[in-house]
Design a protein around this nucleic acid. Structure first.
Length: 585
RNA sequence: GCGCCCUUAGCUCAGCCGGAUAGAGCAGCUGCCUUCUAAGCAGCAGGUCGCAGGUUCGAGUCCUGCAGGGCGCGCCA
């Protein structure tokens, strides 16, 4: 039960009325009211809210829906907050609440302050959100932005509804890509020493950001690695590269306002024997075997050779095919290390794990979920949020990145140009599995095509009025206003805005349980729209202006509404990780 | 061939664990700046919700099939 959510209040009211009807013999006793809900009315003509109670209970009660809806409406009419209740075919009960019910929400918001929209849905349950997790082989580029922003907003959202959230980053600091990093740095190293080693070979990293790493090695070690055997420098060069790139990535994340609680190193897991331990556990459960996988069907693969491998029986947990754990080189597969990592999360107390991945890893979801189920004995759950690739545009023209040619748009550069706020907001304006265009020009132009400014403008306008109020000595008071004062907020546009604000708790809950942070962005857009409407009406009709020197009481009421709106915008933006601005430039 | 995701207005997308007459932005058209910031507002126009069945009192939403698009399909991450 969430006291800040007026719709849960109404649901309780409806359930109470149903109990009364049962006591009066209109309904059977002991009906299951689990499916009864109260939702905001889509059409204002239907009132403020509607309940499906009569339709849901018709069958179990053995009554026609309208035979329940009619007495239910009568019972609800007795509630002092209900202005009107009526049954409507095929069995809705439409509720219109008294203005005071909505006006009270302004006080609820102001009393709650920063805690508005919080609830205990999560009941303190630990959840681990792993996101970004880019390989430490280079700085973050724009392609990393979406998953990073979505993961971070999701983490904030889950915190908001009462989960104990850990933000985590998995560092793939082992394996072939680190060797490639080491070789790339060695190539730069020889360049600096004047060896003219030619263009960066395919498969290595050609971008200039590795130069400082090589320079640091020259400064420290001179030319001692110049003609040394690869086996001598591969490890130290790789370590230097990982160290430098991890620092750079953390700085990129910091510029974006993202701060992970935990970084877990894949290399450490392997070195500590955690992979062996995870596989031992699976082996003990009879989930490992030596076998040969069938070749992929309908797809010609010249190189395919049937080879017996160590396999994990993931098909027992819903996967399509069993998965290999050891490469022909004898090294663990990435999946094997990931098994150890997810077991580690479970051991650290996370029965709920969320991974945010790029959509190109979609084929990986089933096996990882199977692994988490297997390793936890079915006690842990893994959700995977897939983010589709963002189309980067520059003035309407697609911008193709090419890692081989070193044509990469670095995240830090984008943040410098458009700002972290615009970037984060735009990344949250689409469902994560929907395509998303990100146009650098539009974000820079700050034109009206840029959605972040619409919301920030609303917040800035409110701040402007509050400043003007202070200048006119019509200062908004700190505490929550009383009912008599709030009763002055009786204009339809004001009440409409209040109703919108009051949906924030259910929007936040819905966004959290469905793992869809984008809903917050759409909600804020709607709030901003209602506010801009009210503002413009004040320009057209002076009696609707917020600051009325001829009516200080009304002014105080409207300032309270503005502060409540400001609070909702601020908190919503905070979930998205976007800073509210106090004025536009 | 198989798996996952997607298909809603001219374009880009919302649509709240099924709910009443499907919404927003952009593009187009018409209005609104001596007045708290016009980066805004009001209005007009625009949709067989890919197609066909099914479940249900009720389907854009759930199920099945089909079509189209995206991603992926042993020892890359």
């Amino acid at each position: 039960m969430d006291p800040m959510n007026p719709f849960t209040t109404l649901l309780a009211t409806v359930r109470h009325a149903l109990t009364d009807l049962a006591a009066a013999g209109v309904l059977p006793e002991g009906l299951d009211t689990e499916r009864v809900s109260v939702e905001p009315a889509r059409d204002p003509a239907h009132g403020d809210a509607a309940t499906n109670a009569a339709m849901v209970l018709a069958k179990p009660a053995g009554r026609k829906p309208m035979a329940i809806a009619t007495p239910l409406a009568e019972a609800l009419m007795r509630d002092p907050d209900v202005a009107h209740a009526e049954a409507a075919a095929p069995g809705f009960v439409n509720l219109r609440m008294r203005d005071a019910f909505w006006q009270r929400q302004v006080a609820v918001i102001l009393e709650a302050g920063d805690d508005y929209g919080r609830c205990d849905l999560g009941q303190g349950l630990a959840v681990n959100v792993e996101y970004c997790s880019a390989n430490p082989t280079g700085p973050l580029h724009v392609g990393h932005a979406r998953g990073t922003v979505v993961g971070d907003a999701l983490a904030s959202l889950l915190e908001r509804v009462g989960y104990a959230v850990t933000r985590e980053y998995y560092v793939n600091d082992g394996g072939a890509q680190i060797e490639a990093l080491a070789r790339s740095i060695h190539h730069r190293y020889r360049e600096i020493l004047g060896d003219a080693p030619g263009p960066m070979p395919d498969g290595l990293y050609p971008f200039a950001e590795l130069m400082p790493v090589a320079e640091a090695i020259v400064a420290r070690d001179g030319d001692r690695w110049r003609s040394a055997d690869e086996s001598a420098w591969l490890v130290p060069f790789g370590r230097a590269g990982v160290e430098a790139m991890r620092a750079r990535i953390e700085s990129d994340l910091s510029a974006l306002g993202v701060h992970h609680d935990v970084f877990v190193s894949e290399k450490s897991l392997v070195e500590e024997g955690r992979v062996d331990a995870a596989l031992d556990q699976l082996r003990a459960d009879g989930l490992l075997y030596e076998g040969t996988l069938p070749p992929p069907k309908g797809r010609v693969d010249e190189d395919w050779e049937p080879v017996p491998q160590l396999l994990f029986r993931s098909t027992s947990f819903g996967d399509d095919i069993d998965r290999p754990l050891v490469r022909s080189t004898g090294a663990w597969t990435y999946f094997a290390a990931d098994l150890a990592y997810h077991l580690d999360k479970y051991r650290r107390g996370f029965a709920w794990q969320i991974d945010v991945w790029g959509a190109d890893h979609g084929g990986y979801v089933k096996r990882m979920q199977a692994a988490v189920r297997a390793l936890s004995g079915g006690r842990a759950k893994l959700d995977v949020l897939l983010c589709r690739l963002v189309n980067i545009l520059d003035g309407g023209q697609p911008l193709k990145m090419s890692k081989r040619a070193g044509r990469i748009v670095w995240l830090a550069d984008v943040i410098d140009e458009v700002g972290a706020d615009a970037l984060r907001f735009i990344m949250l304006t689409r469902k994560s599995d929907a395509p998303l265009d990100f146009d650098l020009q539009k974000a820079i132009e700050q034109s009206k095509d840029n959605p972040v400014f619409y919301v920030q403008y609303a917040h800035a306008r409110i701040c402007s009025v509050l400043r003007n109020a202070a200048a006119l000595d019509m200062r908004a008071e700190e505490g929550a206003p009383d009912a008599a004062l709030l009763a002055r907020l009786d204009d339809p546009a004001e009440l409409s805005l209040i109703r919108r604000l009051a949906t924030m708790p259910r929007v936040v809950e819905g966004a959290a349980v469905n793992l869809e942070p984008h809903r917050v962005a759409f909600f804020l857009h709607d709030v901003a729209a209602e506010f801009h409407t009210l503002w413009t009406r004040g320009k057209e009709q002076p009696t609707l202006r917020f600051l009325r020197e001829d009516d200080l009481e009304l002014t105080r009421a409207r300032l309270a509404l503005l502060r409540a709106t400001q609070t909702v915008l601020r908190l919503g933006l905070r979930i998205m990780g976007v800073r509210p601005v106090e004025e536009m430039h």
